[in-house]
Amino acid sequence: MKPAVVIIGAGSAGLGAAAALLERGVTNVVLEQGDRVATSWRQRHEDLRLNTVRWLSGLPGLAVPRHAGRWVSRDDYVAYLERYASRQALDIRFGVRARRLTPTGRGWQVGTDTGVYEATHVVVATGNDRVPWQPDLPGLAAFGGPVRHVAELRRAADLAGRRVLLIGAGNSAVEIAGHLVDHGVAQLWMSIRRPPTILPRQMWGVPLHPATVALRYLPERVRDGLARAISRRAFGDLTPYGLPAAADGPFRRMRTTGVTAAVDQGFVGHLVAGRLSIVADVTRLTPNEAILRDGLRVEPDVIVTATGYRSGLADLLGPLGVLDRHQRPLTGKGRQALPGLWLTGFWPAIEGNLRQHGREARRIADAIATGRRRFGGPRPPAADDRRPHPIPGTRP
């Protein structure tokens, strides 16, 4: 039998959707281009820890274990996703890259580099941070040192003793800046065009993540006002250190640009202590210098860009007309983009991306399962016959 649903991507969003569907008796297969689950998580730097609390970061059906601590490390979260896939008995096909989606009269065909899969529904869960975005800086090709996106930096310790120019001011930039100082870079300049709102991960030992969840239904202006007040209470005025307050609140910025708030993991302490310097944005590079907008010149050994990511959805979904000009889905969270086509994991949330993945998984699974019952879909298979297969005559 063919699966009712094909899921593309074996990260947290895809695994959550697969488990929620199985719980409702809906057969599915997960296609993953990597050789293991959580490919994108494995590629992040080794110092990474979640900014969301452990007990609000799990997926449907299995909590993150208590031994992982309050702020779960990269390796512990990868281990959790591996255990999740095994515990839920998910059918995952590794080394399969989805190339195209084609609507048919009865659902969808998923063209891959190993064959064609057919299903009534397709869930795209390839991740919002799939493709690192590198700015096209004038003189970039002439710069004599290495230029690396933060996604390529596996160990901040590798830059110990180096002079580093860090470009960017989002959460990734603020996070890696703290780690670079911790690991002993000789000098760190942080080039900022638009100041972020920086929030503490916890205050007086109490994590703030549950509060953002509890307050999510308040008006945006109220949440932005509370976030500004918390930032001022935690850090004071950082203008004397080169970091003025953000012009807009974090929730408004999230809604209008998709850029989340920056969460402090030691960055502010390093800034106030003078262990890093905030500088203007870069206008041009020479073989050994970066020339800044205010005329200052700095001589870094290495440039690290923390300039964000793109979804990479254009190749797969571009012809279907479901993306805006920024390659972001036009549909809402966990809803159909087209009949039988669902997207999940593409809407970052200050109250927690991982928590959002679980909510979207349940919404999609409920809608698909309800639709099958309403329109007389096939009965759920026996427990020993839940491994779906590609179209006969194609390679798995």
Rank of each mutant, 00 (worst) to 15 (best):
K2L: 11
P3R: 06
G11S: 15
S12A: 14
A13H: 14
L15T: 03
A17W: 09
A20D: 12
L21I: 13
L22A: 02
V26P: 15
G34R: 08
D35V: 02
V37N: 05
A38S: 00
T39W: 07
S40T: 05
W41H: 03
Q43K: 08
H45G: 01
D47I: 01
R54D: 04
L56M: 12
P65V: 07
G69M: 00
D76I: 02
I92A: 10
R93P: 13
L101W: 12
R106S: 13
G107P: 02
W108F: 08
W108P: 07
T112V: 05
A119W: 00
A119T: 01
A119H: 04
P135I: 03
A142M: 07
P146V: 14
V147E: 01
V147L: 00
V150P: 11
E152R: 15
A156V: 04
A156C: 14
I167A: 03
I167C: 04
G168E: 00
G168T: 01
S172K: 10
I176E: 09
H179M: 13
H179G: 04
H183N: 12
G184Y: 13
V185M: 02
I192M: 01
R193E: 00
R193V: 00
R194V: 11
R201S: 09
G205K: 04
A211N: 10
L218Q: 03
P219M: 05
P219W: 08
R223D: 15
A227H: 15
I230S: 10
A234T: 11
A234P: 09
D237N: 03
P244W: 13
A247R: 15
G249Y: 01
T256D: 14
T256A: 08
T256W: 07
T257L: 10
G266K: 02
L271M: 04
V272A: 01
S277V: 02
A280F: 02
R284I: 02
L296I: 05
V298C: 03
D301I: 00
T307K: 10
G308Q: 08
L313I: 03
L313D: 10
A314H: 07
D315Q: 12
L316P: 07
G321A: 08
V322S: 06
D324M: 06
R325G: 04
L330Q: 10
P339T: 07
A349V: 09
R355N: 10
Q356W: 13
R359H: 11
E360P: 08
R372F: 09
F375R: 02
P380N: 08
A382D: 12
R386K: 04
R387N: 08
P388F: 05
P388E: 09
H389W: 09
P392H: 07
R395E: 14
R395M: 09
R395I: 07
